[in-house]
Simulated assay, not measured.
Amino acid sequence: MRPLIRPLIYLVLLAFTFSVKAGDLSQDEALRLREAGRILPLENVLAIIAARHPGSRLLEVELEEEDDIYIYEVELITSQGTVRELEIAAASGDVLKDEEED
C-alpha cells in the first residue's frame, strides 16, 4: 500500500496545479462557444488587432472566462518591437485593455 502513496500525492498536486488556471478555456469549449454564437471567431479578433496595430506579429492568444465574461487575451509584438498585451471582449470585439508589457 505504501508504494501507492507517493504517486497519489503527485496526482493530487498535479490536479491542483491544473485547477489554478481554470479560467483558461479548452479548444473544445472555444469551438462550442463559437458555434453557439457566444464568442467571435478568432479571425475577427485578429482583424481588430491588425487594424489597431498594423504590421504586428502575434505571440500568444488565450480565451479566458473572467466573471462570466469571455475574453481573448492577446500578446503581440508591434512593428517597432514593443510587446503589447490586449484584452478583447470575445462576444463584442470591444478592446478592454491595450498596454505595453513590462
Rank of each mutant, 00 (worst) to 15 (best):
1 M>F: 09
1 M>N: 08
1 M>R: 07
2 R>H: 10
3 P>R: 09
3 P>K: 04
3 P>E: 03
4 L>A: 13
5 I>P: 09
6 R>Q: 10
7 P>M: 01
7 P>S: 05
8 L>W: 08
9 I>E: 00
9 I>W: 08
9 I>M: 07
12 V>F: 14
13 L>Y: 06
14 L>V: 09
16 F>V: 12
18 F>Q: 15
21 K>R: 13
21 K>H: 11
21 K>L: 07
22 A>Y: 12
22 A>Q: 14
25 L>Y: 02
25 L>S: 05
26 S>D: 00
27 Q>Y: 12
28 D>E: 10
29 E>R: 12
30 A>P: 04
31 L>C: 08
32 R>M: 12
33 L>R: 07
34 R>P: 03
34 R>F: 03
34 R>I: 05
35 E>H: 10
35 E>C: 08
36 A>T: 01
36 A>Y: 04
37 G>Y: 01
37 G>P: 03
38 R>K: 15
38 R>C: 06
38 R>I: 09
39 I>Q: 00
39 I>N: 02
43 E>N: 15
45 V>Y: 02
45 V>F: 04
45 V>K: 03
46 L>F: 06
47 A>N: 15
47 A>Q: 14
47 A>W: 06
48 I>S: 06
49 I>E: 04
50 A>C: 06
50 A>R: 09
51 A>W: 11
53 H>E: 00
54 P>L: 02
54 P>V: 10
55 G>H: 03
55 G>P: 00
56 S>H: 03
56 S>I: 01
56 S>C: 02
56 S>P: 01
57 R>D: 04
59 L>I: 15
62 E>L: 07
67 D>V: 11
69 I>Q: 10
69 I>G: 06
70 Y>R: 05
71 I>P: 07
71 I>V: 13
72 Y>N: 02
72 Y>Q: 03
73 E>S: 11
75 E>C: 06
77 I>S: 00
77 I>K: 01
78 T>L: 00
79 S>P: 09
80 Q>Y: 06
81 G>I: 07
81 G>C: 02
83 V>I: 15
83 V>E: 08
88 I>A: 01
88 I>P: 04
88 I>F: 03
88 I>T: 06
89 A>S: 13
90 A>C: 02
91 A>D: 02
93 G>W: 01
93 G>Y: 03
93 G>N: 04
93 G>H: 04
93 G>E: 00
94 D>P: 09
94 D>R: 13
94 D>C: 04
95 V>W: 03
96 L>G: 08
96 L>N: 09
98 D>P: 08
99 E>T: 15
100 E>Y: 08
101 E>R: 10
101 E>G: 12
102 D>Q: 07
102 D>K: 11
102 D>C: 11
